[in-house]
Amino acid sequence: MKIIVAIKQVPERDAHIRIDSSGKWIEESDVQYAMNESDAYALEEALQLREKHSGEVIVVSAGPERVGTTIREALAKGADRAIHIDCNDLNQRDALGVARLIADAIRPDNADLILTGLQSDDLGYGQTGVILAELLGVPHATLILHVEKTDAGLKVKRELEAGFFQEIELPLPAALTIQSGGNKLRYATLMGIKKAKTKEMRVVTAAALDGAPVAVLDGIAHPKKQRSTQIIPGDAKQAAATLVEKLKFEARIL
């Protein structure tokens, strides 16, 4: 089975975010980057499928030169080869634009299965995977926790709201967007990193691919800090009743 995993490099979870002078993106110089979390689970799923059914795992990632470190990490964890779509304006492209880039870059490989994380931790469109499926003309399923290969194609488990799951079957080739937490992630090893050095990393430039954006990013902003402490008056019994009321209808967490 030939599996392609689209991964994205995003600011590290603990990064201190500052908005740059254009107001359209973050100051990149003081940020460290890591692999998007759900993409890491997509890669893990691909590696486990390959271990069970043999085949090839190819990772594809779009972004500037620094994306190379995340690609190498994926190769170190076990991917067989990689495609780097070199582009410096990734954050200004909408999901359609990025999906077009990826679709053009991976089309010649005719993969059996395309995996992505369900959304990116930075922009969080949650669209790239499904548009990619559309562009490649393959069926797709989203929010996948578990993938099983059957004679007819795939049986996958989707996560629904409120603790419900759905199992569906679909033929191959197909595209899936993977939810975090379905598997245990493997760690990168020194041996993996050394082996990754000899693996193929093909660089294609974005200019050579079709990826014109339709939606244009206007600006980004920090969320406004809101602190609204409420002191609930009355005796304990009364206050508890009011608290439950508020948790139910205002905070909506009960």
Binding site: E12, D14, A34, E73, K184, R186, Y187, T189, L190, M191
Partner: peptide, 23 residues
């Protein structure tokens, strides 16, 4: 065992992943 990936441990793997991404 660790540098070749032979050590598989849920807690250890979690610790490594935490430090690969976090601080």
């Amino acid at each position: 065992a660790v540098n070749t990936g032979a050590w598989e441990n849920d807690y250890g793997g979690k610790l490594f992943n935490q430090l690969e991404r976090g601080s």
